[in-house]
Design a binder for these strands. Structure first.
Lengths: 143, 143
DNA sequence: CAGATGTTTTGATTGACTCAAAACAACTGT
DNA sequence: ACAGTTGTTTTGAGTCAATCAAAACATCTG
């Protein structure tokens, strides 16, 4: 059960990130809640339904502002356009269906920050570890 | 010290994969050995130095044939064009420098196929797990 | 409510890659 | 060695996702 987020709290999130509150930003942030792992194009189509004047560039601008301010995260699975989600700050990963491209979150639980310490890092300082799982979603297993 | 691979063995690899042996393919395969994690564009530039008539599309074609036949692997780090390497069949991962984009191989050693079993896979069947580490390479740590 | 700053629109442009048809070259069998 | 079949490369166009820049506009500050 997902309770609708009060629109005031969306505005608060945006303001708290040091950004001006605008209609496109409110719309993108709300849609990102309802449909995580959306592409810019998909967000644009949905935003447009309620704010017909909105441009695709505006959506890219909003997403750049959000990711820059740390209130949204951009993920780029191989072969897919970038996807965006609101869930930030936790070390979580993704599983992508190789057949239908469905994406789900995966909490990384092998210890705490699993795989975060590669055995041989060739002298690199590791900041983050990003894991992408590939497989078949329940629907595609059936088919 | 890297010993040059006899060109006959390159041809053998290609033939063994069920592909016809051609000059562009030999060149790409050899360069892939010398410079792993190269982009198509970079391979093209290098191939062109010795085979001036070669087209970029030919390089894309060669890479598609190689990856399809399993004698090369394509990796697609976020924000980067696709990179190619000859090392295939082992579960190895990559570390990317966030400053200069240098890429190194990382042998995954947390157990055997680490992170390969996500805690909650939402009913997905997991086939592969791909890990990308992000950090600073030795040179960029100094700077 | 006016001003400074930040956002969005409009329009052009790029980078990476894909598609398709025609010309060409590699392996087969003789 | 050579002709035929098949697969590869060239040539040329086109797509998709994303970025850049200038002008018009809206938001928050005082």
């Amino acid at each position: 059960m997902r309770t609708a987020e009060p629109s005031g709290s969306l505005a608060d999130s945006i303001r708290a990130a040091g950004l001006k509150v605008t209609a496109p930003r409110l719309a993108v942030l709300r849609i990102l809640d309802q449909a995580p792992h959306s592409t810019a194009e998909r967000l644009f189509a949905t935003v447009r339904a309620e704010l017909p004047g909105t441009s695709l560039q505006a959506v890219y601008g909003v997403l750049a502002a959000f990711t820059g301010a740390g209130i949204a995260r951009k993920i780029e699975p191989a072969g897919s356009p970038a996807l965006f989600e609101r869930r930030v700050g936790d070390n979580h990963h993704h599983i992508v269906c190789t057949r239908c491209s469905a994406v789900h979150d995966v909490d990384c639980t092998v210890g705490e920050a699993p795989c975060l310490t590669p055995s041989t890092a060739s002298g690199f300082t590791v900041h983050t570890a990003e894991v992408t799982y590939w497989g078949l979603c329940p629907d595609c297993q059936a088919a």
